[in-house]
Simulated scan of single mutants.
Amino acid sequence: MTTTAVLPIKSFSANAKTRLADELALGPRRALVEAMFTDVLTALRRTAAIDRIVVVSADHGAQRIAGGHGAAIVEDAAVGHSNAASAGIADALTHGADRVLIVPGDCPLLDPGELTELLGLDVPGRTALVIPDRHGSGTNGLLLTPPDALTPAFGEDSAARHHQLAVAQGSEPHTVSVRSLALDIDTPEDLALLTETLAATRGGAAHTRGMLNQLARSRG
């Protein structure tokens, strides 16, 4: 079974992670977005069960980083995360993928071992595995077999919505917890939890870890 990972990423511009503006100035905020994106790409590339990576973005910096990791690039018209994910699905179908794994670019703790376990699950038929965020309401990942098992609709309360969409589109939904996909970084609280988690662990998220360490030294 061939698997394509789809990674939609917004621009690294001033509009990136605006809810962190009170914590981080524009430069560090952009650097954080780039570092997290790079760590997610690295985790995907190190997951042997993933045959192809597709980055959906209009940002030239993101496209450059994606190309450096051997990812295919789909130009994004910047019309939202759900539409970008759908563009990645369309590309995966064109290239004959049996399933797609959709993940965000702001989950830098993503672990290749956990992805390998996820992709090894025996879930036959037309299925949609919904991976919730740490609050249980949002969606931080979708594993769709086949790639068009449902039409992505991310946003507030999207975990329940994805279950409903799967049923409506003839797919069987399942909720699957993936610890390293639970924490996405949008708010100061998320950033504080990420910093605390990195301080308590060794290895992983090398680019994000390095960026936050550099920021802490500059503040010190």
Rank of each mutant, 00 (worst) to 15 (best):
V167Q: 13
H95Y: 09
E23V: 15
M211Y: 02
A216S: 10
L121S: 04
R126M: 01
D148M: 07
D22A: 12
R64S: 01
G120R: 11
T116F: 01
S57T: 14
I53F: 07
V100L: 03
L93E: 13
T208W: 03
G203K: 04
F154D: 05
A168H: 05
A205M: 09
A21Q: 13
G170N: 10
V33F: 07
D59Y: 02
K17M: 15
H174L: 14
D157L: 10
T187A: 08
R179L: 09
T47R: 13
D59H: 02
T18S: 11
L44V: 08
T18A: 12
V130G: 06
A72M: 10
D91N: 06
G141A: 06
L198E: 03
L32G: 00
T208H: 01
S158T: 06
E117I: 08
A66F: 05
A62Y: 05
T4A: 14
D98F: 04
D186Y: 15
R52H: 14
A71N: 03
S218Q: 14
A21T: 12
L183C: 12
C107D: 03
G204A: 05
A16M: 10
L144A: 05
R219Y: 00
R126N: 10
P147I: 07
P132K: 11
L183H: 04
G141H: 00
S158K: 03
P188S: 09
A128Y: 08
H95N: 12
A43D: 02
G155C: 09
S86C: 11
A58F: 06
G204E: 08
M1H: 09
D157E: 15
A85G: 01
I89Q: 08
T42G: 03
M211D: 05
V123L: 14
T18P: 00
L193P: 00
K10H: 14
A21H: 12
L183S: 06
D148R: 09
Q169M: 13
T208P: 02
H162A: 04
P8S: 09
R219W: 08
L144W: 09
F37Q: 00
E117N: 06
H81G: 04
E34C: 02
T42D: 15
A31E: 15
G120Y: 10
G80V: 08
A192R: 12
H162I: 07
D106S: 07
R161C: 01
G136H: 07
E196N: 10
A153C: 05
I131W: 07
P147G: 11
D51A: 11
P28C: 00
H207N: 03
S57Q: 02
F37D: 00
D122Q: 11
D39K: 09
L44P: 06
A66Y: 01
A49I: 05
R45H: 08
R179F: 08
A153H: 07
D148G: 08
T18Y: 05
G120E: 12
I131K: 06
E172A: 14
G204V: 07
A182D: 05
H69D: 01
G67L: 13
R19K: 15
D76T: 01
G105A: 14
H174E: 13
A97W: 06
E156S: 07
M36H: 04
A31V: 02
R46L: 14
L109T: 10
T175Q: 11
D133M: 10
L93H: 03
S180M: 10
